[in-house]
């Protein structure tokens, strides 16, 4: 690939990336009323998306082989318990990550 072709490839990736982010704003103008279906989806989608992102993070975790997903499961449980207790995003994230790192480095190497 020549340098010019590299520049075109990177530009196309950047263009596709910004398009997916901008299309809803270009299609639905804030001054005109948005279709009821889109308003409904705007309310209904986020929970489903966050659930999808959690699964996305765990997509390469195998529950059958290796460590059977135990470090991931324990890490998530610690994160959830800490969060239900203190409701501090930073602390919950930190506790979960430290527990997970200890598990994969010391107990499931």
């Amino acid at each position: 690939m020549t340098f010019f072709e590299q520049v075109v490839t990177i530009t196309l990736c950047a263009l596709a990336s910004v398009l997916t982010r901008a299309i809803p704003f270009l299609v639905f103008s804030p001054s005109k009323p948005t279709p009821a279906l889109v308003r409904y989806l705007g309310n209904a989608l986020p929970s489903a998306i966050f659930a999808m992102l959690v699964v996305y993070c765990l997509k390469n975790t195998s529950f059958i082989t290796g460590s059977h997903g135990i470090p991931e499961l324990v890490g998530i449980i610690c994160t959830v318990i800490t969060h239900l207790w203190l409701r501090q995003m930073l602390i919950s994230t930190l506790v979960g990550t430290v527990v997970y790192m200890l598990l994969v480095q010391k107990f499931f190497p």
Partner: peptide, 26 residues
């Protein structure tokens, strides 16, 4: 990143009166 998304998901879960949409996502 996983822990952060878990927290965000949990916050959204506690904030909502229904969990059908979260269930659909999972």
């Amino acid at each position: 990143m996983t822990a952060m998304f878990v927290v965000i998901f949990l916050e959204q879960w506690m904030h909502e009166k229904q969990h059908y949409t979260a269930g659909i996502g999972i």
